[in-house]
Design a protein around this nucleic acid. Structure first.
Lengths: 391, 391
DNA sequence: TTGTAAGCGTTATCAA
DNA sequence: TTGATAACGCTTACAA
């Protein structure tokens, strides 16, 4: 290591290039390139020598040069189009990102993360990234019911995977959930895969233009309903997140289906939408509890709103779970530190991120357009859910 | 826009280059380059024409080509070396990132985010990024008391800014905090700046090798002490975060200083360290409350632990703030949704991120090595702090 | 099996 | 004010 301090700061060490390696190994540049990229056309002996020299020199391919010569940029993009406020509170994104990274960094691929204000800016950014050749592909999060992004990305030819799934409900809600994968299954299990173009030509694929990785919100909601209905609840309200998001639509739809199947009154089992904030979660809770016949159970679409709701109940002296049961969609430290601890739908979010990244790599490798389903979440029953009060 | 669907997916549109612009505008490539980069050597007329054509074609400089020809990579790096578990719960990072982005994206600079397991991997990553020329600079977060990163980065000549400040306590803890900036000041106020090399040659700069952006944890802790001492508390424990982090050391040091200044008993006013998790926060709280003379006030180094602590108190039937006051270092939705709402130290985290990004840009522009101080946080008094019980 | 040379898209250095 | 032309570091035909 060179001497630290001012000198080092001003005069950085020169980075070695393949030319340096070629000279030192006594071969041509192309031989070096072949050797380092595991391509045929170079003897075992030369390959080994070149490798050793590269190692000695601490050589790493200049990413710009590699990208320029027709290769890949070696980076993927992820854009979050949510107000900064909403971002901070949710544990979801950083966990997703860390899962994505795990897969990408194993292949030496970088992740470009950008936080923008709205969907238009996001679309403009995709165009710029594409024009700049900055990324090889992107992960599209928070799919909407009416989403302009798949079409744009398909038109640009920028490989992409939609993370979070389609707006339409899953395969067929009426169909019995045959061989449901259990949440305790080893993580190495191949996730369920549908290849819309081949196996089910008649079924409309969720995003006909892009591969999709999604969670079966419909089944997850069914599990929650099973739990609450089983306890005896008949007045159940779902405080959902942003109305424009695809998974919000799926959850709302599923609640309806499940309510109908059990012959529950739709006026007493329904959804209301919010912006995911603690403020709107609390406000919605207050309104519900003020009603003539308040719900005996509330399902919140994220952990923050669930905790806010529990807090509103506490304020009013409504015992949880004595008079009100609470379920949080998505587990986090939050659900475990409140009192009582909240029953929550546990998802493997980093695992979901890994799956998404793998799928994106598959698309880049020329794999077929397909729809992959992540592990089904399971319901972790804690102290916030119990039998409803009599009456 | 071309037709969507399969065709578009397979045959992406070609990206325009300066060659295309040159041809269409009837000038040479170099003229185009000059025109587009605001360099002299081209007539107003030509410049305007070139600009218009570029606009029409939707041209964007190929980032790889630009990077290769000696220019900048147009990207900055940020590495988070924390286990994925710890990441999710804290609102801090995503907010910091969104602030950083705000500044970088205005200059069309991308942010590479990477999550790694440990410091060694982080250092290896810096080396790789440097060798790959992938980033123009990096933001170093979570500075440690004994940190290998500044020396490495200085030796590599990779521009960097340390976010979170030095291990040593601030300027001089004994010195009266003259003209403290109020938290209500407009955000446009120039932050306090120390240029160690010039103004204070005798004072040891925190990181002699890198520019630093930091918050004055010492003063912040003093504010918390002011609040609690003023209410009458004399037994105050600080449940700190990771012991190796610089700001943890600063806060612990400041607590000692403040305790001494007020003649408080060091056995009754002290710090304990944790890993920031709700589990350790709760565990530490239990131990403290089991003691013969438990503290009347606890200061937690993050919001998650504060909520966990409040939950422990609730479990044991210890009224907050009646018998125990609680302060959270860092505000978030969490502190506002619990019951009672928690008194918290409010920082402008996105603002801190903006400041860090600006400083990094300044370093890249050849600015001097310096230490910049962020806005001083303020204490938002809520219902979790009150007078201690008599005795 | 090896070396030579062209090209990727940009910036920068020259003459004209 | 312009327009060739040579880098930048890598990949990849193509020739030896």
């Amino acid at each position: 290591m060179t001497a630290p301090g001012e000198a080092a700061r001003r005069k950085p060490a020169r980075r070695p290039t393949i030319k340096d390696i070629a000279r030192r190994a006594g071969v041509s540049e192309s031989a070096v390139s072949f050797a380092l990229n595991d391509r045929p056309g170079v003897s075992q002996d030369t390959r080994a020598r070149v490798r050793r020299v590269a190692e000695e020199l601490g050589w790493q391919a200049n990413s710009a040069a590699r990208a320029l010569s027709g290769e890949r940029a070696g980076a993927m993009g992820l854009v979050l189009a949510r107000p900064a406020q909403t971002l901070g509170v949710e544990s979801f994104f950083l966990q997703l990102v860390s899962g994505i990274q795990e897969v990408l960094s194993a292949r030496q691929i970088a992740l470009l993360l950008q936080v923008v204000e709205d969907l238009d800016t996001e679309c403009a950014l995709y165009r710029r990234w594409w024009a700049e050749r900055r990324v090889d592909g992107v992960l599209v999060v928070d799919p909407r019911t009416d989403d302009p992004r798949p079409e744009l990305l398909a038109a640009l030819g920028l490989p992409a995977v939609v993370v979070g799934g389609p707006a339409a409900p899953g395969p067929d809600p009426a169909e019995p959930s045959a061989g449901e994968p259990s949440a305790t299954e080893p993580a190495t299990t191949e996730p369920a895969v549908t290849e819309p173009a081949t196996t089910e030509p008649s079924a409309t694929p969720p995003h006909p233009l892009l591969s999709t990785v999604w969670a079966d919100d419909a089944k997850a909601m069914a599990r929650i309903l099973d739990h609450l209905y089983g306890l005896g609840h008949r007045r159940i309200v779902h405080i959902a997140g942003l109305p424009g998001l695809a998974h919000t639509a799926r959850r709302i739809q599923s609640l309806r289906t499940e309510a109908d199947r059990r012959g529950l009154d739709r006026r007493q089992v329904h959804s209301v939408t919010t912006d995911y904030s603690d403020a709107e979660g609390a406000e919605a809770t207050r309104r519900l509890l003020d009603a003539a016949r308040p719900p005996t159970a509330i399902v919140y679409d994220n952990d923050v709103m669930a905790v806010a709701g529990a807090s509103v109940a506490a304020e009013r002296g409504i015992p949880v779970p004595g008079a009100l049961s609470i379920v949080a969609w998505d587990d986090s430290a939050l659900c475990r530190v409140t009192h009582p601890r909240l029953t929550a739908l546990v998802r493997d979010t980093p695992g979901f991120g890994r799956l998404a990244a793998q799928e994106l790599l598959a698309v880049l490798d020329g794999g077929p357009l397909r729809t992959v389903q992540g592990e089904l979440p399971h319901l972790e029953a804690r102290e916030s859910t119990a039998m409803p009060p009599p009456g």
